[in-house]
Amino acid sequence: MNVVVCVKQIPDPAAPGALDPSTHTLVRSGKLILDDSDSYGVEMALQLAGNVEGSEVTIVSMAPNGETSGLRTALAMGAARAILVSDDALAGSDALSTAKVLAAAARRAAPDLVIAATESTDGYTGTMPVQMAELLGMPSVTFAKRVSTDGTTLKVERQTESGYDDVECPLPAVVTVTAGVVEPRYPSFKGIMAAKSKPIDVLSIGDLGLDAGQVGRAGARQEVVDVSEAEARGSGEIVVDEGDGAQRIVAFLEQLKVV
C-alpha cells in the first residue's frame, strides 16, 4: 500500500503571526517547521502502513525556498521519502491551486491512501484535502477520529455534530485526521540520523506540467481588499481570589439575573 501524507511546513505558531502589509498574506519568511496538525497524519500513516505488508509512506509538501526542515522531522519519524514542490511562482497560492500542485505531486507516488490534516494551523481553510480528492478522482472521508485499513477498504469513525458515523470506503481514497487521533511518536536519535540520507525529490511546477498562470498569485481568483483592527473586547475586572472568588462570580451572575 502506497501511503502519501500531505505535510504543511509553517512558521512557528508560537511566534506572533503577521500579515504582509502589501500582499495581506501571512508572512512566511524565516524557518518553517512541521505543522503540528500534520504530525498526527504522519503517525497515522506509519501505523496503517505497518499493518499492511509491502507499504511505503511518502511525504508530500509544497513550501517556499526549498524548505525541508519539516520534511526531515516527518522522515525522522519513519517515512521513507519525500516530495517537495518549491517554486517562486507558487507564492500567494490559494487552497485550490495548492490542491492542483499537491495532487500532481502525489500522483508520482501512485497513492492508495492520501492522508492530510483536517485543517492547517496557519491557513485553516480545511478545504485543500477535499479539493485534492476531487482532482485525483478519489472518495474522501474528512474529520476522521479513528482509521483502519486492510489495504483494500478504509474504515473510519467520522466525527459528526452529535457523535460519530462509521464510514467505509474502498481505496484509493483521501482521509483527513483530527488532532488527538493518534499519539505522534518523537523521532528517535536513530531516526533523526537516518532521515539525513532519505531521498527528497524537489520539483518545480514545470516538472509537474503545471502552468505558472494557474497557480500562485497569478492564478488566485480571490484577493484581500482590507485588513482592520477588530472591535476590541475590553477586559473587565480581574481580581485575585482571596477566598472570595466564588462569591464575586455569584454577585456577577446575580447582576445579570442569571441566578
Binding site: D94, A95, L96, A99, Y124, T125, G126, T127, M128, P129, V130, Q131, A133, E134, L135, S140, T142, F143, R158, Q159, T160, E161, A220, R221, Q222
Partner: peptide, 23 residues
Amino acid sequence: ASYDGRDIAGRLSAKLDRPVLTN
C-alpha cells in the same frame, strides 16, 4: 462551515474550478 458543508464546498470548488472563501 460544517463537516458536510466543507466537503461539498471543496468538491464543488474543484469541479467548477472556482476558489473558496472560508471562515
